[in-house]
Nucleic acid binder design. Sequence first.
DNA 1: ATCGCGTGAGCGAAATGCGCAGAATCCCCT
DNA 2: AGGGGATTCTGCGCATTTCGCTCACGCGAT
Lengths: 231, 231
Amino acid sequence: MSDSALTTLVVDDDFRVASVHEGFVEKVPGFLVVGKAHTAADAIEMAQRLQPDLILLDIHLPDGDGLEVARILLDNPRPPMVLIISAAADIAAVRTAVQLGVVHYLVKPFGFAALAERLSAVRAAHAKLTDWPADAGQEEIDGFFELLRPMPSDPDMPDIEHLAPTLQLVYKTIGSGSAGLSASDIAAQVGISRATAQRYLTQLEHIGAVKLQLRYGQTGRPEHRYSIRRN
Amino acid sequence: MSDSALTTLVVDDDFRVASVHEGFVEKVPGFLVVGKAHTAADAIEMAQRLQPDLILLDIHLPDGDGLEVARILLDNPRPPMVLIISAAADIAAVRTAVQLGVVHYLVKPFGFAALAERLSAVRAAHAKLTDWPADAGQEEIDGFFELLRPMPSDPDMPDIEHLAPTLQLVYKTIGSGSAGLSASDIAAQVGISRATAQRYLTQLEHIGAVKLQLRYGQTGRPEHRYSIRRN
DNA sequence: ATCGCGTGAGCGAAATGCGCAGAATCCCCT
DNA sequence: AGGGGATTCTGCGCATTTCGCTCACGCGAT
């Protein structure tokens, strides 16, 4: 296994975040940060000049899409390894990232431990490639593949895809509103009766998908306000 | 490269969807459907008994999670290849699927062409493993990796040419109407019973060809309205 | 003759809205 | 401090409408 550290370029539009990530990477044995970029243009220029082994690449850059930067950098005879960092955990970005051949995909927020784990896996994968045996077989393939697979995250939201259509609709309507919504609010937006909305809101609250808050301060029974439960 | 067909097990909770997928697979050269399962328990039992090369596996099964089935089946000295079929394109499921080592991940709706493309890639990957060169290098790795990374499905209208005649007729009738149509509407226009129309509409909705909206505002069970799904 | 498949009829269940009783709060008066 | 009235909202029973499923039938293939 190579003794030299893996040179790393950190790319993030936010200076502070880039510094935090630099600090993280520096703490992992076997890695050396050789530069930081804050725009797509700088990222491409510095990657070509510094030829780092690994690039931590934020998707959202002020002058372009991080995935487009990845595409450009990975279209190369000897491309760097790219580890995507993103707040936007949408399927399209993940698909594109995987299709592009990124080694890992980290969704914010993450801590030092999460990054360290993946950097270790990246280092192991890099080492495996460097010392590939001549009689490689299925085990080597599997071992390599395993190192590069993204890690599963905790399922935040309940899986409501296969629940009743009206329940899905009510849930999505709550999600589209920032403030807590009442049964009457939901009913008006969805186009169903207040009683039906109430029925489903109670159900969602019982399964823990939404949280309930009461509106006090007026005469009459307090209004139930519902909002998406975020963990 | 082996001349024998890749034996395939189709797993889907919906009998009709399973039949549709069986029809698709049978039309791709080099594949042979050896069984269909509709529950997690059946899938595991049939996979162990039939030892198929490939399993088309729906995530949502009545008695368990398809990904858990994949986990069980892939934890095996000589596992089958697993191709996930899912309506729930959430990142957690994708991550888990990739981590488990599935060969492809198809998100509904997809048509025959999309499945055929991936089955061809699966066959190519299988062939590449069978004839792995002794002096394999980065190119071989990349080539293999590319074949097995989940690809985004084409957002095309599902290919219904290979479906049952009445199903095609129902689908085309929906397409000819701009507004959502109910089962009764479809039945009247096609000249079939409401129950039959309902049967095929449910099937089309399950395979992702049409989308369902409910008509609210009146007492009684809301009317299901179907329209062509356009992306 | 038998079997399998597609279809229609009919029935029980699901899902909605209506309307009302009662719950829950606030405020005022004693 | 406590009771009662007013107000507002929730929860639920019931009627209505539609869906989903089972069973029977017809037809074509064997």
